[in-house]
Design a protein around this nucleic acid. Structure first.
Lengths: 72, 72
DNA sequence: GTGACTTATAGTCCGTGGTCTGATAAGCAA
DNA sequence: TTGCTTATCAGACCACGGACTATAAGTCAC
């Protein structure tokens, strides 16, 4: 794999922005998604590489369409 | 995790459709993406759960925008 | 000061993501 | 028939996804 990592950073920034717009903390958002608090933190910092199922759970937690998550 | 698996099936069908529209075999497409042949097969059948980086590689291999991949 | 809230970060652990080899089978052309 | 292409499938392997615990540090109110 070993790509440029840019995608993870972009995705993380997008999640963080949408979460903040929804007025949720990382922890309440993680709980809503059924994810771990520290894992969400890693995603927003562009360190983690979430799977398709996690990405879908995140979109559901943000109450948006999947395509909207990738409107960078 | 243990979700409904629907997302993986939907995603796989989408990839398969776009790949066929591009006139590529699974193997040539896998090579273009730098992925394994059998792994692409699993994705299209909705068995595999690809990561964000793989999803981006797939979009690049299909020469489309990421958002377009999720226009189910 | 103390306390509640929020986030970052390190570390461990188990299950799975992703690669590889190889076998199988169907379709089609020569 | 033979040969080539395509896709499915099994098994093994290593690296990493994702959960968890715990610490630390920042903000704000009191």
């Amino acid at each position: 794999m070993r790509k440029s990592d840019k995608i993870k950073v972009l995705f993380g920034q997008r999640v963080k922005k949408l979460r903040q717009q929804a007025g949720m903390s990382q922890e309440t958002f993680a709980d809503k998604c059924g994810l771990d608090r520290t894992y969400v933190s890693g995603i927003e910092r562009g360190i983690r590489n979430p799977t398709l199922e996690v990405i879908e759970v995140i979109a559901r937690g943000l109450e948006i369409e999947l395509t909207h998550l990738f409107d960078f």
